[in-house]
Amino acid sequence: MTETAIPAAKSGPRISGAFHRLLAFSGLIALVVVFSLASPNFMQTQNVLAILQATSVNGVLAIAATLVIITGGIDLSVGTLMTFCAVITGVVLTNLGLPLPLGILASILAGTFCGLVSGTIIAKLKVPPFIATLGMMLILKGLSLVISGTKPIYFNDTPGFNQIALGSAVGSVFPAVPVPNGVLVLFLVAGLAAFVLSKTALGRYTFALGSNEEAVRLSGVNVDRWKIAVYAVAGSICGVAGLLIASRLNSAQPALGQGYELDAIAAVVIGGTSLSGGRGTVVGTLIGALIISVLANGLRILSVAQEWQTVVTGCIIILAVYADILRRRTL
């Protein structure tokens, strides 16, 4: 993973930024240690892989949300967009019987297109991101049901499809650690997103927009275009998430997806990205997503009642954000 905060800044906040990531990271480590001590089943290879598998979809969605949140926006449509992309893949592969690579391409293109639409509504029509993506969330939820005929689309005719998430390229080389491909995809997406944020103009404008949009506009930058681009990239990442979930379930489930945006946003926030924009990291988001799934898995392994699992997750979210506030106060 590469450094994804503002690169090369040598001043105080960056050190504390690193500190915060350290904090989130130590939080993750602490969780792992506690659960390992509490249950011998927790650190089994199979369970660790289960945790990573459970992180993959939410992690990818959270990365998409991270990009948008750094611009100072919000994307509530990531969950249903993922579903929509999965359904499109289902149509291409199962209903139309086209080859696998076209299905993959279709999912990513569908995501990009929907992101373009959201971005355009936000940038050109000046509809606030919360409302625009809330609308998109519902539109895509409905369209998924319409296109799929309200029934899951199965991928039984495309034998290789479930290998995208469930197969293990690593396992074929090192049979002892059969890391599912879905996890590799997550890390690949994270790496690419971190790279885009730190090394490309798109990444620079992502931070700049969240920091002071008016200043960017006054600097002669075509703000609308870049904003649309950010939503489009986030959309394409949702397309990847769509592939992952469809592959994992070997089906496109059209009713699924609503509610997933909140888990994604929770991961982003736990990872130290500011909801008011301007700062955030992909690594942080990844750690945030891992904290959520380690917590869920660990509590299940310990047979904690489900009601209490929810309470604990809520507490952790508030604690993580409070830690961030403390950090800023001591800046």
Binding site: N41, A50, S303
Partner: peptide, 9 residues
Amino acid sequence: DMLAAALSR
């Protein structure tokens, strides 16, 4: 995920 965690147990 729940089924996987239960199996790990």
